[in-house]
Design a protein around this nucleic acid. Structure first.
Length: 800
RNA sequence: GGGCGUUUAGCUCAGCUGGCUAGAGCAACUGGUUUACACCCAGUAGGUCCAAGGUUCGAAUCCUUGAGCGCCCACCA
């Protein structure tokens, strides 16, 4: 008993460690495919292992989804909750390049891949530790990584199948290109970035020595100019249509054409079309079958067509040509402007259009299909469908899935060098790497040529992660056929809003081609974690605390509690006070548990057994008991509805109100005088039974949100009388049956009377427990019924 | 230019399909060792619910218009 001073205070380290060990030992979260209960399959976003700065935002979004997982588990679902890691593709490669200050082109492929694998190993360990500490209830025997053989196999299968269904093609076209990463990229990989630039007004040479002024922000593309355009009704230029011009500092001639899309108001009304400066150029080039003068190479440097600018980078060429134009007197004027550029989200490099041979999945002209699927999903919150819709409607390009990179899933194809016939790998051989493995046939089935070229490109990392809805069941295996079949489509896809246009959208694309089905039923979208000022958390700003330090400082329960602070889809500011509120809640539960156990200690096993029984036979319940039970039932109903709608924030608010304002601050105070009786009266027994039942249910309601302290409470006070190994596999609370009726309004008057006396004592500077001889109530209350109750609770000898 | 979200107490936010005097936590102030808890308890003060108009017996809540903030998309000659 000398240890009492340390034992009697709440120490989250001890409590949380105990719970972690218990869950591990009992394998509470292990998926059991043999269970009869309905399945609930969660398609958790596999985090990029290359994130080396985990912060409150990561904690927030994974915790929010996990509240639902724990709730569903208690609801009796057979929950499948696995964790994957997304470790292939550009994010990882960029991370490795930055960390080791290298460039993929200056290191051997095998060395580079080795480094990538090393970093992904480190990354996944970091994440696993964080998730364990946070109490993310994953079945760790069901993990995958997107570079693992099983993921490669499914990803390659999906692609081959998609090809059979006509969704795949290879083509040499101008494509979005990143000159830093030296790979093709997709529309979804672009990001907006505002940049200061200059609008340059430059004179081209017309046929009759006229000066034709064009405006451009990209003068380095002048050597790539293939035509000039005016609006057909623009009087200023009407006589030019059909003639030609010579771009500034160039020798070649370009035609002057008319197109109604040209806005006479913008610039000079005379525009240059280059191959290819932007999407507009591309359209006119296609439409009018213009010649190609492509000057930007894959490495971002200019080629021989650029003449004196050959070998320069885009920026160098821009500076030099502006200087030359100025010297030649062809630069009329410059205007400073701010414009938004499309940049590659991984490296901030402005996107270029470069002609290149790539693999595509057909998505661009199927908007209606994608919207149809989108409407079939249950979006939580509903408004997130709009983001999806918005994106689908803005699709311009087919999905370019080939990347000229190293660390990814290979495209499982060989091409005949003679007739370009495509030979796909055999399904039974997957996963394959065409660069290392033999082709499935010796000769081209088309022309009998024996020279087969292995594909060297890898896939966009999203092309693999988009397969997770049908990858998860592979972790269970086909020998569990009945479960395997039911695991797709999955029940829930939880993710942050910024990957709706990538992960969610691409998953729908894959699922459409491969199965003609929606990939998931419910989508739960989370917001962002922000810093305390509402700014986006970024490594560059350093405006965050590392997640492991947060956990050490506050404990997992407290931080999880904070994560309930944003309603679904909303951003959440970091707020240390809100975390402390979580800790206070844990402390309160800890202390009430202590209060309960002190009273349970006095009882015999037989009596404890009896108070853990149903209350519907108990004839001794008093008004306060009935009031709290009725209130608990309302709380259970409201909390359940909230969780059913993925509204963990509403659930928390409901439980919080009930627990603090009604249970802790009132009910526990109301029964103290009954418990103080040294004899085990019927009244005392009733109070203990209600205290026991209500507190048990509160612990269960809180369990999905603060799993550690609730597990502690369960082990301490309830597990002896209930068969569940852990509170997290106990059944979710349902409406309690009890005998007796209560007039809620009448009882509310008694509560008002108690408040009145509390205020009086407080204003008099009296302790609440101080006995006062007499008090005259102003509140109208049925005293014949409640005199004894009020005067006992408030220690008033004579109440009138 | 288009879309989405947001605006409620000093701060961070709840307020569902319109209905009793608009709530919580923190901060401030006053008081209190009360047999679970000083990591506590009780109380006090603090709000033209962004603005204007409309619907209604009644609006923080619904409609219209506008403003501020944040995000996404488009344009970037």
């Amino acid at each position: 008993m000398t240890k009492k001073s340390t034992d009697s205070a709440y120490q989250f380290e001890v409590i949380e460690n105990q719970a972690r060990k218990l869950w591990q030992k009992l394998k509470i979260f292990k998926f059991n495919p043999q269970k009869k209960q309905p399945l609930y399959v969660v398609d958790t976003p596999p985090p990029y292992v290359s994130a080396d700065h985990l912060h409150s935002g990561h904690i927030m979004s994974y915790a929010q989804a996990e509240f639902i997982v724990r709730y569903k588990r208690m609801r009796g679902f057979n929950v499948f909750y696995s964790m994957g890691f997304d470790d292939n593709g550009l994010p990882t490669e960029r991370f490795v390049e930055k960390k080791y200050q290298i460039n993929k082109n200056k290191i051997s492929k095998s060395k580079f891949i080795k480094l990538c694998l090393k970093e992904t190993e480190i990354g996944s360990r970091t994440y696993k530790k964080l998730w364990d500490n946070l109490g993310i209830s994953v079945d760790w025997s069901k993990t995958y990584s997107t570079i693992s053989p099983i993921a490669q196999k499914i990803s390659q299968w999906s692609l081959i199948d998609l090809n059979k269904k006509g969704g795949l093609y290879q083509k040499q076209v101008p494509i979005l290109w990143c000159t830093t990463c030296r790979t093709a990229i997709a529309q979804a990989d672009l990001e907006d970035k505002e940049q200061a630039s200059k609008m340059n007004y430059i004179d081209f040479q017309g046929q009759k020595d006229q000066k034709l002024t064009i405006a451009t922000t990209r003068p380095e593309l002048i050597p790539a100019c293939v035509a000039l355009y005016v609006h057909p009704k623009d009087k200023r230029y009407a006589d030019l249509i059909g003639s030609s011009a010579t771009p500034a500092l160039c020798q070649h001639q370009v035609p002057i054409k008319a197109n109604p899309n040209v806005d006479p108001e913008k610039g000079t009304g005379l525009i240059m079309v280059c191959t290819w400066g932007d999407v507009e150029d591309l359209e006119k080039w296609r439409l009018d079958k213009l010649p190609t003068r492509s000057i930007i190479q894959e490495n971002g440097k200019l080629n021989q067509l650029a003449g004196p600018y050959q070998g320069l980078t885009i920026q160098e060429a821009r500076n030099k040509i502006l200087k030359d134009l100025k010297n030649a007197g062809l630069l009329r004027r410059q205007e400073k402007i701010n414009h938004t550029l499309n940049v590659h989200e991984r490296c901030d490099t402005p996107m270029e259009l470069v002609k290149s041979r790539q693999w595509f999945i057909k998505i661009a002209n199927l908007q209606k299909t994608w919207l149809k699927y989108g409407r079939q999903l249950n979006w939580y919150p509903k408004s997130m469908f709009k983001i999806y819709q918005n994106w689908v409607q803005s699709l311009k390009w087919d999905w370019c899935i080939s990347r000229q990179r190293y660390f990814g899933v290979p495209i499982p194809v060989w091409s005949c060098q003679k007739c370009d016939h495509k030979i796909f790998a055999k399904i039974k051989d997957l996963p394959v790497n065409p660069l290392e493995d033999p082709a499935p046939v010796k000769k081209c089935p088309g022309c009998q040529n024996s020279k087969l070229q292995p594909e060297s490109d890898v896939m966009d990392t999203w092309a693999t992660s988009a397969c997770t809805p049908f990858l998860l069941r592979e972790l269970v295996g086909k020998n569990r056929q009945s479960v395997y079949d039911k695991m797709f489509p999955v029940s829930l896809r939880p993710n942050a809003f910024e990957i709706i246009r990538t992960w969610d959208f691409y998953s729908i694309v894959k699922s459409h081609y491969n199965f003609k089905k929606i990939p998931f039923k419910d989508v739960m979208i989370s917001g962002h974690g922000l810093d305390e000022h509402g700014r986006k958390i970024s490594k560059r700003l350093g405006n965050y605390q590392p997640s492991d330090r947060l956990l050490q400082q506050y404990g997992a329960d407290a931080i999880r509690y904070w994560a309930t602070g944003a309603s679904l889809g909303q951003n959440l500011r970091f707020n240390a006070k809100e975390i402390k509120k979580g800790r206070k809640t844990a402390i309160k539960l800890f202390n009430i548990n202590k209060f309960l156990s002190i009273h349970l200690e006095e009882l015999s096993q037989k009596h404890i057994k009896s108070i853990s029984q149903n209350l519907n036979q108990n004839k001794d319940l008093e008004p306060a008991d009935l009031w709290i039970l009725k209130s608990l039932n309302q709380c259970i109903k409201k909390t359940t509805t909230a969780f059913e709608n993925y509204n963990y924030a509403g659930a928390k608010n409901t439980i919080h109100d009930f627990f603090w304002s009604q249970f802790a601050d009132y009910y526990v105070e109301f029964i103290k005088y009954r418990l103080a009786n040294s004899r085990l009266t019927a009244s005392k027994k009733a109070a203990l039974a209600v205290l026991y039942q209500v507190f048990f249910n509160i612990a269960k309601l809180y369990a999905p949100i603060i799993p550690f302290i609730t597990e502690y409470v369960y082990r301490q006070s309830f597990s002896k009388n209930h068969s569940c190994e852990s509170i997290h596999v106990c059944s979710w609370p349902e409406k309690l049956a009890f005998s007796g009726r209560i007039n809620q309004q009448e009882f509310n008057q008694a509560l008002a009377a108690i408040d009145e006396i509390r205020t009086y004592k407080s204003k008099q500077g009296l302790a609440l427990g101080k006995e006062i001889p007499t008090y005259q109530l102003k509140t109208r209350v049925n005293l014949t019924k409640f005199r004894n109750f009020i005067s006992q609770v408030m220690k008033v000898k004579k109440l009138t």
